[in-house]
């Protein structure tokens, strides 16, 4: 017989680099090397058409993808409308639109 006391052990919210699967991230870096140049400025999220209404944060999503948390936000990727404004504003010349496309394809594959 199991008893519920109304609390449980919370899941770790920590990024443990040693345990994450970096294969998706490595593949992304291979296919679109310009993503290495990201400085985390947030221009992409700032200009994003989808961001204000959906809370979609392309800067954070692709950073987490690079950290090896590929599976964590499949639903997030659906919010992108592929307008490409992010690529137009990026000061480091990262092809973010392609990064989005690749992330979706890598997860779906």
């Amino acid at each position: 017989m199991t008893h519920s006391f109304g609390y449980s052990i919370s899941q770790s919210r920590e990024t443990n680099w040693d345990k994450l699967d970096h294969r998706f991230a490595d593949k992304l870096l291979d296919l679109e090397p310009s993503v290495r140049l990201c400085v985390g400025c947030g221009s992409c999220t700032g200009t994003c058409t989808a961001a204000p209404r959906s809370g979609f944060d392309i800067r954070k999503v692709h950073t987490r993808f690079r950290r090896g948390e590929a599976g964590a936000f499949v639903a997030e990727l659906e919010k992108c409308m592929f307008c490409g404004k992010c690529s137009m504003v990026c000061p480091r010349g990262v092809n973010i639109r392609n990064v989005m496309d690749l992330m979706k394809k890598l997860i779906e594959a």
Partner: peptide, 10 residues
């Protein structure tokens, strides 16, 4: 890792 807002260990 302040760009994702998550504690990180390595």
């Amino acid at each position: 890792d302040t760009l994702t807002g998550v504690p990180m260990k390595m």
